[in-house]
């Protein structure tokens, strides 16, 4: 390799972005070239020094004491949210584990709805068109839920959810008269999420609620309570068992 080629890639080498073969070629060149070796050494020295000093930044003890004190007293959302009836945001905090979801979905024969949710979301992402009857504001979406499904629920606003930053994008009616549903679009920790609302009297409650929100945003999950069913589908977290259907 020539010096110019090597020097163009020294930063990538220092940043561990090179594949093993290229990295090795550069190391071989550097061994035999004093000037490139000097440049690489200087880059590493400066980077190490900068890292060492900046990592030494510490949160003041009194600041942590204040945070810890607040954490000791701040109300935690429990496994079953307190404001269930009024805030769908709380539903997000009480999602079932994927295994439980699949069990519920399979047992009620509703897999096709989950599949449709993901398909619809992918289609929406391409077109950015919610179609006729779409709700663009939270108030419109809440009215749509009430008119179409007779559900009085609240759409989550940013900051409502526990550990998850959900932002409302839009909602639209889906399904037909025999199986009406509403699909709401959110971004959750930067990822697209669809929430499907249906009425389903067949399953009356779910006893296996566990909070899984936060780690990677919402994964696919479902929550059933009374006659309300909500599917939460994050595009990049479709379980492999379902992904094969698309």
């Amino acid at each position: 390799m020539r010096c110019t080629e090597v020097r163009a890639q020294l930063d990538a080498l220092v940043d561990s972005r090179l594949d093993a073969a290229t990295g090795s070629d550069i190391e071989v060149h550097v061994e035999s070239c004093p000037e490139c070796r000097r440049l690489l050494a200087e880059m590493r020295t400066v980077d190490d020094d900068v890292r060492g000093r900046l990592r030494a930044e510490r949160m003041p003890d009194d600041a942590w004491s204040r945070i810890e004190a607040r954490l000791q007293t701040e109300p935690r959302r429990t496994l079953v949210p307190r404001r269930f009836a009024t805030r769908v945001a709380a539903l997000a905090a009480a999602a079932c584990l994927v295994a439980a979801v699949l069990w519920i979905v399979d047992s009620s024969g509703a897999t096709s709805l989950a599949a449709a949710a993901v398909r619809d979301h992918l289609s929406y992402e391409k077109s950015r068109d919610l179609g006729p009857g779409a709700a663009r504001t939270i108030e419109e979406a809440e009215a749509l839920l009430e008119n179409r499904l007779g559900l009085t629920v609240g759409i989550p606003k940013l900051g409502d959810t526990c550990g998850v930053d959900m932002q409302f994008v839009g909602a639209r009616p889906i399904g037909d008269a025999s199986a009406p549903a509403v699909q709401a679009f959110f971004t959750c920790c930067g990822r697209p999420v669809s929430v499907i609302f249906t009425r389903d009297a067949a399953v009356t409650d779910c006893q296996s609620m566990q909070c899984v929100c936060g780690e990677n945003g919402l994964q696919m999950c479902t929550l059933v309570r009374g006659d309300l069913r909500a599917f939460f589908v994050a595009r990049d977290h479709v379980p492999s068992e379902l992904a094969s259907q698309f």
Binding site: A63, R70, G163, Q210, C211
Partner: peptide, 19 residues
């Protein structure tokens, strides 16, 4: 400090020791 505190509070609400 405020932002870190809000981050911790938000995370604690979503934290499940079981998972």
């Amino acid at each position: 400090e405020d932002v870190v505190q809000e981050t911790y509070v938000s995370a604690m609400r979503g934290f499940s020791p079981a998972d």
